[in-house]
Amino acid sequence: MKELKILGIVTVFTLILYWGVEPFAHSQMHKHVEGHDFTYPDLPAVKAKGNAENGKNLVMACVGCHSITSQNMPAPMDPVMSAQTYGVNPPDLSNIGALFDEKFLAHFLLDPAKVTKSKHFAMPPSAGSEQDAADIVAYFKSIAPKEVSPKEAYAAACGRCHANRYGHWTQLGDVPKTKSNIKTGVDLDALEFKKKLGIYQNKLADYMGKLPPDLSIIIRARSEDFLETFVEDPQSQLPGTAMPRVGLTKEGYEKVKAYLEETGDPSKPLREKTGPWVVGFFVIFAFLAFLWKKSIWKGHH
């Protein structure tokens, strides 16, 4: 039928056009980076078998800078003071055993700068031997919570450098709920928090070279493939970037991604729920319109 032939030609040209300006153009503009599913093949396997009991003793050296809140070990300094001392607030270690790769952590303890591939690293080598490193990792594994929420994963892996304003997250944690003075409109607590955050961000920017970007909507600003390979190894996508390799496991990354979707693409669940109804409506609409057209055109040909 002639109309179908015309439709075929229009469709073919439209699809060629789409292919050229979308998949093809983007494949030429962005280099392809092969991911390794967060397995870190450049790091050799750790032979030593970890002993959590022994690790527990060794960890006493860590809490000089880090907190382990789940084990009632508080941070020695508040985040702002920490940033003034180290450039960035050292992370809480309660759930790192659940989020980060074992092998990565062990090598990280032996030589942080090398493993993170970042010149910007305040932490010194912190394990004397592979055995010590394996013991410390075993300890963190033993205290790791079974379930880590997407937000906790983001806070642990990204949240000390990257704010997420759509998630009301700052490098100092959640934006606190404060009240303004009803007579003047002045909110002193909020101003105080802003000042603390400002000091932290200035220090962080000095430490990293610039303020790491807010990640509120990064899930739509970068392709899925870019984000995954970038987080796995920042240097692979942006050579020379100050961002360290963080060593997330695949599951840990999925958690972080879930949080980024929550803040950057919150309509996804509703979109998937509404879509079939709207498209279905127009399928029925088109079918009824076809019947109407047929009845109107009866006798015209």
Binding site: G275, F282, A289, W292, K293, I296, W297
Partner: peptide
């Protein structure tokens, strides 16, 4: 009547 039928098909694609 033909226009509206074509529009129906088009809207399926559009909302997809």
């Amino acid at each position: 009547s033909k226009d509206i039928f074509v529009m129906g098909i088009y809207f399926i694609l559009f909302f997809y």
